[in-house]
């Protein structure tokens, strides 16, 4: 059901994570992702996972919500894990299903798959947390601020940010609209949820045409309304919200950098091998 999609949604709150400066949150996420991909051992990866779980708890977002966003990406996770098992032939052979051929499940493949799953989960956890705890407007404002040096290169940063604000604002509206149009056409027997592939594709026309027509209508009405509210190119617009870094951002930065450094350091340090967590990706 389209109504169940939660990715990109914002859950208003007052937690430590909600109160972080959105610019800081974006930067933190980048640092976290880089660190995550530098991790080469299970031990450091688990450290990163623990950190992200700790952040989730701090955000007071219901774990059920997080699980729902996970479920949506589960297919991709499983798919990449399977690829890893199939194509990685490093390490000892664990299982050789076919007598002929070279295909075999190896320790390297299994390690790789598990490693990948943990890494993706850790990645999704914090990425979805960013949108769950930051409103779309703040997020785009933050991106606009972070990208503002590009103005020197004549990149229309403001217009891009405004486009993103509007896109985010209209996602729920359009999802609802798609839902209604699909229901209405299904009520006329459109084979959107039954019938053969060809029939389904044909039935999609009855959804896309009205959606397109209505999107154009919305766009033109919105443009009119924005003009009425004195929007021009918006280059010199002032803002209601001024973003300020606070002690929270400093504290979060210290913890994140400490954890990332520890994780990356441990990846290359013999402690992990002593604890029998072998580096698997070389």
């Amino acid at each position: 059901m389209i109504k169940d999609i939660t990715i990109g949604q914002f859950f208003p709150g007052n937690s430590f994570v909600h109160k972080l400066d959105p610019r800081a949150k974006i930067l933190f996420l980048i640092v976290y992702i880089v660190a995550l991909f530098l991790c080469r051992s299970f031990f450091s990866l688990l450290l990163m996972l623990a950190f992200s779980l700790f952040t989730v708890i701090l955000s007071r977002i219901s774990p059920k919500m997080i699980w729902k966003s996970m479920k949506a990406i589960l297919v991709i996770v499983v798919f990449t894990a399977v690829l890893q098992i199939v194509y990685n032939d490093k390490g000892d052979i664990l299982w050789k299903p076919f007598a002929s051929g070279s295909f075999a499940v190896t320790t390297g493949g299994v390690y790789g798959a598990v490693f990948l799953i943990v890494r993706i989960i850790a990645l999704i956890l914090l990425t979805s947390l960013l949108t769950y705890t930051t409103s779309a407007t703040l997020l785009t404002d933050a991106i606009e601020k972070l990208l503002s040096p590009l103005k020197l290169l004549h990149v229309p940063v403001h217009s891009l940010a405004m486009m993103m604000t509007i896109a985010l604002r209209f996602i729920p509206t359009l999802l609802r609209e798609i839902d209604i149009i699909m229901s209405a056409q299904k009520a006329r027997g459109a084979m959107l949820d039954n019938g053969s592939m060809g029939q389904r594709i044909k039935a999609l026309v009855s959804v896309f045409v009205p959606l397109l027509v209505s999107s154009f209508r919305r766009a033109s009405e919105l443009a009119t309304a924005m003009e009425c509210r004195c929007y021009t190119d918006g280059a010199n617009r002032t803002r209601l919200r001024v973003m300020r870094f606070s002690w929270r951002d400093a504290a979060a930065a210290v913890v994140l950098i400490a954890v990332s450094f520890a994780a990356v350091f441990l990846s290359f340090c013999p402690i992990s091998t002593i604890l029998l967590f072998q580096p698997v990706i070389s």
Partner: peptide, 20 residues
């Protein structure tokens, strides 16, 4: 089709922001 921002007060601020 005339609300620009995702949050109520941010939308109300849109006009005054345009007036700089």
């Amino acid at each position: 089709n005339q609300i620009v921002a995702s949050i109520v007060e941010e939308d109300v601020a849109f006009g005054p922001e345009n007036l700089c």
